[in-house]
């Protein structure tokens, strides 16, 4: 179990879990706040008692942008901020829907896909859509 002074830091732990197909975030054992991105101490109360916990994977789009790019350079792609049910926000991408149909309030579900460099990254799909 990672903690202050023991083992790898929270960024490395998160990345290692993701590489194994596990999306977990931290939860503070002292005040109960969920924490993302991974941190050494809880930004709500300062406690170092942060434990990795599983998530429902459900979230809601908070804001979205579509980066416009010529087709020959790979075409348009979306970038979103998603609020997870646990109360944390993360940047991500929504797959399985036309960019113009992504709006704030859209219900989405997390899965592990590929980031820009082909590295594992948390992405989302509209709720109820099969992966």
């Amino acid at each position: 179990m990672a903690g202050i002074g023991q083992g790898p830091g929270p960024d490395a732990v998160f990345a290692a879990k993701l590489a194994e197909g596990v999306f977990e975030i931290q939860k503070c054992g002292s005040c109960g706040t969920h924490v993302f991105h991974p941190r050494v101490i809880c930004p709500a109360c300062g406690s170092a008692d942060l434990k990795w916990v599983a998530l429902t994977g459900r979230g809601t789009v908070y804001a979205r942008t579509v980066v416009r790019r010529k087709p020959e350079r790979g075409g348009d792609y979306n970038v979103v901020l998603v609020d997870l049910e646990e109360g944390v926000r993360m940047m991500s991408r929504i797959d399985g829907i036309a960019h113009d149909q992504i709006v704030a309030g859209l219900k989405v579900t997390a899965s592990i896909g590929e980031g820009a460099e082909g590295d594992p990254a948390v992405i989302f799909r509209p709720e109820g859509e099969a992966n």
Binding site: D11, A63, R64, R93, V103, G115
Partner: peptide
């Protein structure tokens, strides 16, 4: 940033675009 890079936001433009989108929505 580490937790944004996988999604290729334009720096710094997409961050402001997200703020504009949210302002328009809200």
């Amino acid at each position: 940033p580490t937790y944004e890079a996988p999604y290729r936001p334009l720096f710094p433009l997409s961050s402001y675009a997200l703020a504009a989108d949210r302002h328009m929505t809200q």
